[in-house]
Simulated scan of single mutants.
Amino acid sequence: MAMLKSAAVLTRDNVAFLLQGVPCMYRELLFSVKPAGELPSQEGRVAVVTGGSRGIGLEAVKTMLRLNMHLIIGSSNVEKAEKVLKPLAAEVDGKGKLEVWPLDLTKQKSVHAFCQRFLETGLPLHVLLCNAGIMFYPKHELTEDGFEMQLAVNHLGHFTMQHLLYPRLRAAGTADRKARIVNVSSAAHNCGGVNFDDIMLSTTYSSKGAYFQSKGAQILCTKYLAKKAQEAGDNVTCNSLHPGVIYTDLYDYTTIYKVAAPVLKKIWRSPKDGAETVLYACLSPEAEGVSAAHFENAAVYRSAGYTEDAQQQQKMWEASCELCKVGTFGQPDN
Protein backbone atom coordinates (compact mmCIF):
# COMPACT_ATOMS: atom_id res chain seq x y z
CA MET A 1 0.00 0.00 0.00
CA ALA A 2 2.82 2.39 0.89
CA MET A 3 4.51 1.71 -2.46
CA LEU A 4 1.27 2.36 -4.32
CA LYS A 5 0.76 5.64 -2.45
CA SER A 6 4.33 6.71 -3.19
CA ALA A 7 3.93 5.88 -6.88
CA ALA A 8 0.67 7.84 -7.00
CA VAL A 9 2.30 10.90 -5.42
CA LEU A 10 5.25 10.77 -7.79
CA THR A 11 2.94 10.43 -10.78
CA ARG A 12 0.80 13.34 -9.56
CA ASP A 13 3.80 15.63 -9.13
CA ASN A 14 5.34 14.70 -12.47
CA VAL A 15 2.07 15.35 -14.29
CA ALA A 16 1.60 18.66 -12.46
CA PHE A 17 5.11 19.71 -13.40
CA LEU A 18 4.50 18.95 -17.07
CA LEU A 19 1.13 20.69 -17.11
CA GLN A 20 2.61 23.84 -15.56
CA GLY A 21 6.14 23.70 -16.94
CA VAL A 22 5.38 23.29 -20.63
CA PRO A 23 3.01 26.31 -20.82
CA CYS A 24 5.52 28.36 -18.83
CA MET A 25 8.34 27.56 -21.26
CA TYR A 26 6.03 28.18 -24.22
CA ARG A 27 5.07 31.57 -22.79
CA GLU A 28 8.71 32.52 -22.41
CA LEU A 29 9.44 31.53 -26.00
CA LEU A 30 6.63 33.79 -27.19
CA PHE A 31 7.56 36.87 -25.17
CA SER A 32 10.95 38.55 -25.18
CA VAL A 33 12.83 39.29 -21.98
CA LYS A 34 11.74 42.57 -20.44
CA PRO A 35 14.76 44.48 -19.06
CA ALA A 36 14.77 45.88 -15.55
CA GLY A 37 15.02 49.36 -17.05
CA GLU A 38 17.17 52.26 -15.93
CA LEU A 39 18.37 51.65 -12.39
CA PRO A 40 19.53 54.44 -10.07
CA SER A 41 22.88 54.64 -8.32
CA GLN A 42 23.06 52.54 -5.16
CA GLU A 43 25.86 54.56 -3.56
CA GLY A 44 25.59 54.42 0.23
CA ARG A 45 23.16 51.49 0.07
CA VAL A 46 23.73 47.98 1.39
CA ALA A 47 22.35 44.62 0.25
CA VAL A 48 22.58 41.14 1.71
CA VAL A 49 22.41 38.47 -0.98
CA THR A 50 22.20 34.69 -0.73
CA GLY A 51 23.23 32.59 -3.71
CA GLY A 52 25.21 35.44 -5.21
CA SER A 53 28.18 33.54 -6.64
CA ARG A 54 26.53 31.68 -9.52
CA GLY A 55 23.65 31.75 -11.96
CA ILE A 56 21.02 34.46 -11.64
CA GLY A 57 22.42 35.75 -8.36
CA LEU A 58 25.87 36.29 -9.84
CA GLU A 59 24.45 38.31 -12.74
CA ALA A 60 22.44 40.45 -10.32
CA VAL A 61 25.53 41.01 -8.16
CA LYS A 62 27.52 42.24 -11.17
CA THR A 63 24.95 44.97 -11.85
CA MET A 64 24.60 45.91 -8.19
CA LEU A 65 28.35 46.39 -7.96
CA ARG A 66 28.40 48.58 -11.06
CA LEU A 67 25.74 50.70 -9.38
CA ASN A 68 28.13 51.26 -6.45
CA MET A 69 26.31 49.11 -3.89
CA HIS A 70 27.86 47.53 -0.82
CA LEU A 71 27.15 43.80 -1.06
CA ILE A 72 27.44 41.11 1.58
CA ILE A 73 27.14 37.68 0.03
CA GLY A 74 26.23 34.66 2.15
CA SER A 75 27.80 31.44 0.90
CA SER A 76 28.16 27.86 2.14
CA ASN A 77 31.58 27.72 0.43
CA VAL A 78 33.36 31.03 1.03
CA GLU A 79 36.60 30.06 -0.69
CA LYS A 80 34.83 28.98 -3.87
CA ALA A 81 32.56 32.03 -3.86
CA GLU A 82 35.48 34.43 -3.39
CA LYS A 83 37.27 32.99 -6.41
CA VAL A 84 34.25 33.91 -8.50
CA LEU A 85 33.32 37.20 -6.86
CA LYS A 86 36.56 38.95 -5.93
CA PRO A 87 37.66 39.53 -9.55
CA LEU A 88 34.43 41.43 -10.12
CA ALA A 89 35.78 44.36 -8.12
CA ALA A 90 38.43 44.97 -10.79
CA GLU A 91 35.85 44.72 -13.56
CA VAL A 92 33.74 47.55 -12.12
CA ASP A 93 36.65 49.98 -11.66
CA GLY A 94 36.49 50.10 -7.89
CA LYS A 95 32.78 50.85 -7.72
CA GLY A 96 30.81 49.15 -5.02
CA LYS A 97 32.10 46.91 -2.28
CA LEU A 98 31.81 43.17 -1.89
CA GLU A 99 32.25 40.84 1.07
CA VAL A 100 31.66 37.08 1.27
CA TRP A 101 30.59 35.59 4.61
CA PRO A 102 29.88 31.98 5.58
CA LEU A 103 26.20 31.03 5.55
CA ASP A 104 24.69 27.56 5.54
CA LEU A 105 20.94 27.84 5.08
CA THR A 106 20.45 24.22 6.16
CA LYS A 107 21.55 25.17 9.68
CA GLN A 108 19.64 27.65 11.80
CA LYS A 109 22.71 28.27 13.96
CA SER A 110 24.64 29.36 10.85
CA VAL A 111 21.83 31.74 9.85
CA HIS A 112 21.84 33.24 13.36
CA ALA A 113 25.63 33.65 13.29
CA PHE A 114 25.53 35.37 9.90
CA CYS A 115 22.80 37.79 10.99
CA GLN A 116 24.47 38.54 14.30
CA ARG A 117 27.68 39.37 12.46
CA PHE A 118 25.78 41.77 10.22
CA LEU A 119 24.01 43.45 13.12
CA GLU A 120 27.34 43.96 14.86
CA THR A 121 28.70 45.91 11.88
CA GLY A 122 26.17 48.67 12.47
CA LEU A 123 25.53 48.85 8.71
CA PRO A 124 22.10 49.81 7.39
CA LEU A 125 20.26 47.28 5.23
CA HIS A 126 18.33 48.43 2.19
CA VAL A 127 17.85 45.19 0.24
CA LEU A 128 17.62 41.59 1.42
CA LEU A 129 17.74 39.34 -1.65
CA CYS A 130 16.85 35.75 -0.75
CA ASN A 131 18.02 34.08 -3.92
CA ALA A 132 19.77 30.84 -2.90
CA GLY A 133 17.91 27.60 -3.46
CA ILE A 134 18.02 23.93 -4.33
CA MET A 135 15.70 22.04 -6.65
CA PHE A 136 14.43 18.45 -6.80
CA TYR A 137 16.68 17.17 -4.02
CA PRO A 138 16.66 13.43 -4.80
CA LYS A 139 16.09 11.92 -1.37
CA HIS A 140 14.15 12.62 1.79
CA GLU A 141 16.69 14.11 4.17
CA LEU A 142 16.25 16.15 7.32
CA THR A 143 18.65 18.86 8.44
CA GLU A 144 20.11 18.98 11.94
CA ASP A 145 17.11 21.12 12.89
CA GLY A 146 14.71 18.45 11.65
CA PHE A 147 13.68 20.32 8.48
CA GLU A 148 13.14 18.73 5.08
CA MET A 149 16.11 19.83 2.96
CA GLN A 150 14.36 21.90 0.28
CA LEU A 151 12.04 23.57 2.77
CA ALA A 152 15.08 24.43 4.91
CA VAL A 153 17.14 26.02 2.15
CA ASN A 154 14.45 27.61 0.03
CA HIS A 155 12.23 28.93 2.80
CA LEU A 156 13.02 28.43 6.49
CA GLY A 157 16.63 29.63 6.40
CA HIS A 158 15.55 32.78 4.60
CA PHE A 159 12.56 33.22 6.90
CA THR A 160 14.88 33.35 9.91
CA MET A 161 17.12 35.85 8.11
CA GLN A 162 14.14 38.09 7.46
CA HIS A 163 13.16 37.89 11.13
CA LEU A 164 16.62 38.71 12.46
CA LEU A 165 17.47 41.43 9.93
CA TYR A 166 14.05 43.07 9.82
CA PRO A 167 14.90 45.76 12.42
CA ARG A 168 17.77 46.94 10.24
CA LEU A 169 15.54 46.98 7.15
CA ARG A 170 12.84 48.89 9.01
CA ALA A 171 15.39 51.48 10.16
CA ALA A 172 16.86 51.94 6.68
CA GLY A 173 13.61 52.36 4.75
CA THR A 174 12.09 55.77 4.15
CA ALA A 175 8.73 56.88 2.81
CA ASP A 176 10.37 57.84 -0.50
CA ARG A 177 12.71 54.85 -0.79
CA LYS A 178 11.59 51.80 1.08
CA ALA A 179 13.80 48.89 2.10
CA ARG A 180 13.05 45.76 0.09
CA ILE A 181 12.82 42.06 0.83
CA VAL A 182 12.86 39.97 -2.34
CA ASN A 183 12.22 36.22 -2.38
CA VAL A 184 13.21 34.38 -5.54
CA SER A 185 10.51 31.77 -5.95
CA SER A 186 9.34 29.82 -9.00
CA ALA A 187 6.34 29.27 -11.24
CA ALA A 188 6.57 25.69 -9.95
CA HIS A 189 4.65 26.82 -6.87
CA ASN A 190 1.57 26.51 -9.10
CA CYS A 191 2.07 22.74 -9.23
CA GLY A 192 1.14 22.09 -5.60
CA GLY A 193 0.51 23.68 -2.24
CA VAL A 194 1.73 23.10 1.30
CA ASN A 195 1.09 19.78 3.06
CA PHE A 196 0.30 21.15 6.51
CA ASP A 197 -0.51 17.64 7.80
CA ASP A 198 3.03 16.44 7.03
CA ILE A 199 5.09 19.50 6.22
CA MET A 200 8.39 17.57 6.37
CA LEU A 201 6.94 15.01 3.94
CA SER A 202 8.06 12.16 6.19
CA THR A 203 5.27 9.81 5.09
CA THR A 204 5.67 10.13 1.33
CA TYR A 205 8.49 12.10 -0.29
CA SER A 206 8.60 13.45 -3.81
CA SER A 207 11.55 15.58 -4.91
CA LYS A 208 9.27 17.68 -7.10
CA GLY A 209 6.51 17.91 -4.48
CA ALA A 210 9.01 19.11 -1.87
CA TYR A 211 10.21 21.79 -4.27
CA PHE A 212 6.66 22.91 -5.09
CA GLN A 213 5.90 23.15 -1.37
CA SER A 214 9.02 25.15 -0.53
CA LYS A 215 8.26 27.71 -3.21
CA GLY A 216 4.63 27.99 -2.19
CA ALA A 217 5.68 28.49 1.42
CA GLN A 218 7.94 31.35 0.31
CA ILE A 219 5.12 33.19 -1.41
CA LEU A 220 2.58 32.64 1.37
CA CYS A 221 4.96 34.17 3.92
CA THR A 222 6.02 36.92 1.53
CA LYS A 223 2.45 38.12 1.23
CA TYR A 224 1.80 37.78 4.95
CA LEU A 225 4.90 39.78 5.89
CA ALA A 226 4.03 42.45 3.34
CA LYS A 227 0.66 42.94 5.03
CA LYS A 228 2.25 43.01 8.50
CA ALA A 229 4.72 45.67 7.38
CA GLN A 230 1.98 47.77 5.84
CA GLU A 231 -0.24 47.52 8.92
CA ALA A 232 2.70 48.55 11.15
CA GLY A 233 3.51 51.51 8.92
CA ASP A 234 7.02 50.17 8.24
CA ASN A 235 8.84 51.44 5.18
CA VAL A 236 9.62 47.90 4.03
CA THR A 237 8.23 46.10 0.99
CA CYS A 238 8.20 42.35 0.52
CA ASN A 239 7.76 40.66 -2.86
CA SER A 240 8.39 37.35 -4.59
CA LEU A 241 9.27 36.55 -8.18
CA HIS A 242 9.67 33.91 -10.85
CA PRO A 243 12.92 34.64 -12.72
CA GLY A 244 12.01 32.50 -15.71
CA VAL A 245 12.98 29.01 -16.83
CA ILE A 246 16.71 29.61 -16.68
CA TYR A 247 19.62 27.45 -17.81
CA THR A 248 21.60 27.11 -14.56
CA ASP A 249 23.03 24.32 -12.42
CA LEU A 250 19.91 24.51 -10.26
CA TYR A 251 18.77 21.55 -12.35
CA ASP A 252 21.75 19.39 -11.41
CA TYR A 253 19.51 16.79 -9.77
CA THR A 254 17.30 16.32 -12.85
CA THR A 255 17.86 13.67 -15.51
CA ILE A 256 16.56 15.82 -18.36
CA TYR A 257 19.16 18.49 -17.58
CA LYS A 258 22.01 16.01 -17.85
CA VAL A 259 20.70 14.33 -21.00
CA ALA A 260 19.35 17.31 -22.94
CA ALA A 261 21.67 20.10 -21.77
CA PRO A 262 22.80 21.20 -25.29
CA VAL A 263 19.18 21.62 -26.43
CA LEU A 264 17.98 23.25 -23.22
CA LYS A 265 20.79 25.79 -23.35
CA LYS A 266 19.39 27.04 -26.65
CA ILE A 267 15.72 27.28 -25.69
CA TRP A 268 15.87 28.27 -22.00
CA ARG A 269 16.71 31.77 -20.87
CA SER A 270 20.17 32.70 -19.64
CA PRO A 271 21.10 33.67 -16.07
CA LYS A 272 21.50 37.24 -17.32
CA ASP A 273 17.91 37.15 -18.57
CA GLY A 274 16.70 35.83 -15.22
CA ALA A 275 18.56 38.57 -13.36
CA GLU A 276 16.43 41.26 -15.03
CA THR A 277 13.37 40.46 -12.91
CA VAL A 278 15.53 40.13 -9.79
CA LEU A 279 17.06 43.56 -10.39
CA TYR A 280 13.63 45.00 -11.14
CA ALA A 281 12.27 43.76 -7.80
CA CYS A 282 15.35 44.88 -5.85
CA LEU A 283 16.21 48.23 -7.41
CA SER A 284 13.80 49.54 -10.03
CA PRO A 285 12.03 52.84 -9.35
CA GLU A 286 8.99 51.29 -11.09
CA ALA A 287 8.71 48.79 -8.23
CA GLU A 288 9.05 51.46 -5.52
CA GLY A 289 6.32 51.02 -2.93
CA VAL A 290 4.95 47.84 -4.54
CA SER A 291 4.47 45.13 -1.93
CA ALA A 292 2.80 41.72 -1.57
CA ALA A 293 3.28 41.29 -5.31
CA HIS A 294 4.66 38.46 -7.41
CA PHE A 295 6.85 39.48 -10.35
CA GLU A 296 7.57 37.76 -13.62
CA ASN A 297 9.43 39.18 -16.62
CA ALA A 298 10.00 42.47 -14.77
CA ALA A 299 6.31 43.10 -14.17
CA VAL A 300 3.61 42.21 -11.63
CA TYR A 301 2.20 38.77 -12.43
CA ARG A 302 -0.35 36.50 -10.81
CA SER A 303 0.64 33.80 -8.34
CA ALA A 304 -1.35 30.65 -7.61
CA GLY A 305 -4.79 31.14 -6.09
CA TYR A 306 -3.94 29.42 -2.81
CA THR A 307 -1.16 31.95 -2.15
CA GLU A 308 -3.79 34.68 -1.98
CA ASP A 309 -5.77 32.85 0.72
CA ALA A 310 -5.39 34.77 3.99
CA GLN A 311 -5.94 31.65 6.11
CA GLN A 312 -3.21 29.71 4.31
CA GLN A 313 -0.87 32.68 4.58
CA GLN A 314 -1.41 32.88 8.32
CA LYS A 315 -1.11 29.11 8.74
CA MET A 316 2.22 29.02 6.89
CA TRP A 317 3.46 32.06 8.81
CA GLU A 318 2.62 30.52 12.17
CA ALA A 319 4.17 27.19 11.18
CA SER A 320 7.37 28.99 10.08
CA CYS A 321 7.55 30.94 13.33
CA GLU A 322 7.14 27.76 15.35
CA LEU A 323 9.71 25.80 13.36
CA CYS A 324 12.28 28.62 13.43
CA LYS A 325 11.57 29.43 17.10
CA VAL A 326 10.52 32.98 16.33
CA GLY A 327 8.74 34.63 19.24
CA THR A 328 7.81 38.08 17.96
CA PHE A 329 8.87 38.61 14.36
CA GLY A 330 11.45 41.32 13.91
CA GLN A 331 12.30 41.56 17.59
CA PRO A 332 15.43 40.13 19.26
CA ASP A 333 15.10 36.56 20.50
CA ASN A 334 15.25 36.07 24.25
Rank of each mutant, 00 (worst) to 15 (best):
L85I: 06
K86T: 01
K86L: 02
K86Y: 01
L88F: 15
A89L: 11
A89N: 05
A89E: 07
V92I: 05
D93E: 09
K95S: 11
K95N: 00
G96P: 08
L98Q: 13
V100M: 06
W101A: 02
P102Y: 10
P102D: 05
L103P: 12
D104W: 03
D104Q: 15
D104R: 13
L105D: 10
T106I: 11
T106C: 15
T106W: 01
K109E: 01
K109Y: 01
S110Y: 07
S110T: 03
A113Q: 02
A113V: 00
A113K: 02
F114H: 07
C115T: 13
R117G: 01
L119R: 12
L123C: 07
L123S: 14
L123V: 10
L125E: 08
L125W: 04
V127Y: 01
L128C: 06
L128G: 03
L129H: 03
L129K: 00
C130V: 04
N131A: 01
N131Q: 02
N131P: 06
A132H: 09
A132Y: 00
G133D: 12
I134V: 15
I134H: 02
I134F: 05
M135Y: 14
M135C: 14
M135G: 08
M135S: 11
M135W: 13
F136G: 01
Y137S: 09
P138G: 06
P138D: 11
K139A: 14
K139I: 13
E141R: 13
L142R: 11
E144M: 02
D145A: 13
D145N: 13
D145E: 09
D145Y: 15
D145V: 09
G146V: 06
F147H: 12
F147E: 13
F147L: 07
F147G: 00
E148V: 11
E148F: 13
M149L: 12
